[in-house]
């Protein structure tokens, strides 16, 4: 059994302008000790996926369908009492802005200890020792002294390390990191990523690494999910996604980034503008920007197709020959709900 199993998850926001289908039927699994990356452009549903797992959505947001199973236990509609046990204990989350997780009016020590006292059976003295140990683990120098400091006395990189210490103090099975280094400089980003990698190996937890930076994904992740407009385009090992992309959006993304091979040349950007979730097209959400779009793409969203045991993609091009031979047509194909 996978540690986390998500099936056809749907999360919407009900706004004045209408229903925003932020997460529109996604399925994936996460095993113990794995690092899973979620990439996609802003608004593609990465954070909403994370917030759905934690059930920390804004009041206008609601999980409208699907299932989230953690260690076999269903979390959708499980109730706040269950979720409170899950959060921090089994699943921790860190955000782009460390101040989301830190209280400016309390010392670092107070905050880490509070989290330990809340989630574990430790007493105050043990919690103090654990907090110091965690600060040392995330390479904060003079941890005893730092315990007495307030968040504003630390740099951005140090704050993010404190937040990681807090998130890991209760030894969660899963750490969700939502753009944890996006606000940081590359040298500090490198420190944080190295830290996360070594802690992950040491503690054996799983990480969901949400980012729009393909460099971070290449460095950190065993597996990668590519999202577009609330759907998963493609999922596979990092090598499969980078070297053998099988969805047109992923291919476009890979061509858009400057790399050693593009220096001095023009890039090949994806044409068009990002999608409007209030007006999702009927078929493949990427069809309006896709150079390879076929008739079927406009009518019907492609299913998750298994390409090999470590690679899925939802793109009709993978069965182009069957479509051309008439074996597959939108009328006959009704497995899409």
């Amino acid at each position: 059994m996978a540690l986390l199993e998500i099936n056809d998850l749907r999360t919407s926001f009900f706004t004045d302008a209408g229903e925003v289908k932020a997460v529109n039927g996604i399925s994936f699994q996460l095993d113990h000790g794995k690092v899973l990356g979620i990439v996609g452009e802003s608004g593609s549903g990465k954070s909403v996926t994370a917030y759905s797992i934690m059930q920390i959505l804004a009041s206008t947001g609601k999980i409208v369908g699907g299932s989230i199973k953690l260690d076999g236990q269903e979390l959708v509609n499980a109730g706040e009492k269950t979720m409170r046990k899950v959060r921090g204990n089994k699943v921790s989350i860190i955000f782009q802005d460390p101040m989301t997780s830190l209280n400016p009016t309390h010392t670092i020590g107070h905050q880490i200890m509070e989290s330990i006292l809340l989630h574990t059976g430790r007493n105050k003295k043990q919690a103090y020792e654990r907090a110091v140990e965690m600060l040392r683990l995330v390479n904060i120098n003079e941890p005893e002294k730092r315990m007495k400091q307030y968040p504003h006395e630390l740099s951005g990189g140090m704050r993010q390390r404190v937040v990681i210490a807090m998130a890991l103090a209760c030894e969660p099975d899963i750490l969700i990191a939502d753009e944890p280094t996006t606000a940081l400089d590359v040298t500090i980003q490198a420190q944080i990523l190295d830290l996360m990698s070594s802690l992950q190996k040491e503690l054996g937890m799983a990480i969901i690494m949400i980012t729009h930076d393909l460099g971070v994904v290449a460095q950190m992740c065993d597996e990668v999910i590519v999202m577009y407009a609330g759907s998963i385009c493609e999922q596979g090992t990092a090598d499969e996604i980078f070297y053998n992309p099988r969805h047109e959006y992923t291919k476009g993304l890979m061509r858009s980034i400057p790399t050693a091979g593009t220096f001095g040349q023009r890039l090949s950007p994806i044409a068009g503008t990002p999608i409007d979730l209030l007006n999702l097209p009927a078929g493949c959400p990427f069809a309006p920007r896709c150079d390879a779009a076929m008739k079927i793409c406009i009518k019907q969203k492609a299913d998750r197709m298994i390409l090999n045991d470590c690679h899925y993609a939802a793109c009709w091009l993978n069965v182009k020959d069957k479509i051309e031979s008439g074996e597959l047509s939108p009328a006959k194909e009704d497995s899409n709900e």
Binding site: S155, G157, M158, D185, V186, T187, I188, Q189, A190, Q191, L193, D194, D213, L214, G215, V216, V217, A218, Q219, A238, D239, F242, Y243, M254, I257, T259
Partner: peptide, 26 residues
Amino acid sequence: ALMSAVPMPDPKIARESHRIPLSGDI
């Protein structure tokens, strides 16, 4: 240190690259 910290969007290069660690803050 700065150049070695750039995460390259290529898993093979990323696995092989050697970072020059930079301690402390600016």
